[in-house]
Design a protein around this nucleic acid. Structure first.
Lengths: 220, 220
DNA sequence: ACTCATTCTTGAACACGTTCAAAAATGAGC
DNA sequence: GCTCATTTTTGAACGTGTTCAAGAATGAGT
């Protein structure tokens, strides 16, 4: 049965994630994971090509949870500021058990070669899932976001979310209070800033920003 | 004489930086550096407590060069957009010999524990030097930047510069063409965006952005 | 010239992530 | 039940960054 193999894989992943949470990334050695799971080091490597891939496992799990919790939090909230807050706060919520481990995660994630790199191919699925959350936040909001912004906004917000995550990693205040404050302050500001798009002089600047974003994205 | 000791230190640093440039970060092992420099591994560690500290040496050197080259490039340029371009382009210029090594550098730099972390204590001097460049870019520009923005703008631009550096690391286009394009496009947009501060409706949003930045910075 | 504390240098040793040849377990086909 | 290719498991071994006890070189004070 394929179940036995899958069971071992799950066991290793579970032990690893538990140890990441409880004793941190660096202290969780591959040898310790193997020992705790009752398998050999080589066996852990049979299922996960590197320690990074175990981090990817965590990343996927956290993203999945974010999707669920965010969807729930979005229910009944209409205004963009509120919807943004909901998505960002739940994002921080699901990450919080791993805060002490955050900087190692980011250091891992940021190398282009890493499977966890949020811009990379190996995490396309997780990124799409995360993007979908922001798309839903934007599309479901009323009053509606200006049509010309609607297409690119989710991606830009996702990018901003990466920034918030980075801020959170560095946030040493208790319970990451400062990150919460940043979210509460920034979300309404973004919403208000976007509403300025109606002003003619501002509108042109917005157009150029979007043009730049698109042109840089496509390379060319 | 203290010169002998300093000589060994310089030798190790020079060999290390040369190897970083020529064969990359990971292939440049401490053993290889020691051998190439004709000293023992332990001796290299006498002068640099970790491989990261050798990266810090590189960071400082690159920043110093940026300060010189940027100051030169700013001469004779009046408008903010042009001054921003000058600072950013020279920034990319001085980094370019290390592009292949960039992702390892960022991965190192991003951990709060690293001496190279741009937000950390160990690189206060380098950060101040870099901030000074942006301060000079802002203060020397004419037409002048709105008074209320002048104080915080350099720091925000420096932050944006960190973003550009991140973009550059990921930029796989030849000669990092896309980064150049981003700079050329974004600099005038920033300048134009700032000029919108005169519009009453926009002004209030700007005030709130500044207020948020300040309040998050101070913790509280 | 001779101390002797200080500075500098050495290389073996440690724990880590990772690899790999070999062995063990599994299961489909007969 | 036997065969044998495939999947799974093992643990020793490699190269890495880093540490450290020990020794060598240095130089100020006499």
């Amino acid at each position: 049965m394929a179940a036995k193999s899958e069971q071992t894989r799950q066991l290793v992943a579970d032990v690893a994630l538990k140890m990441f949470r409880e004793i941190g990334f660096e202290k969780t050695t591959m040898r310790a994971i193997a020992q705790e799971a009752g398998v050999s080091v080589g066996n852990a490597y049979y299922y996960f090509a590197s320690k990074d891939e175990l981090v990817q496992e965590l990343y996927i799990q956290v993203q999945d949870e974010h999707a669920v919790v965010a969807a729930q939090a979005l229910e009944g909230i209409q205004d963009l500021a509120g919807r943004l807050k909901a998505v960002l706060h739940t994002g921080v919520d699901v990450m919080s058990p791993y805060h002490q481990f955050g900087s190692d995660f980011i250091a891992t994630a940021i190398r282009p070669s890493s499977p966890v790199n949020p811009f990379g191919e190996a995490s396309t699925a997780a990124r799409e899932a995360s993007l979908a959350i922001f798309r839903s936040a934007v599309e479901g909001s009323s009053p509606a976001v200006a049509k010309k912004l609607r297409g690119d906004l989710p991606e830009l917000l996702w990018l901003a979310y990466m920034g918030v995550a980075l801020f959170w990693v560095y946030d040493r205040s208790e319970g990451q209070r400062r990150t919460r404050k940043l979210i509460d302050g920034a979300a309404p500001l973004v919403a208000r800033g976007l509403s300025l798009a109606k002003i003619p002089g501002v509108s042109k600047v917005f157009d150029d920003v979007l043009g730049l974003v698109r042109s840089v994205k496509e390379d060319s």
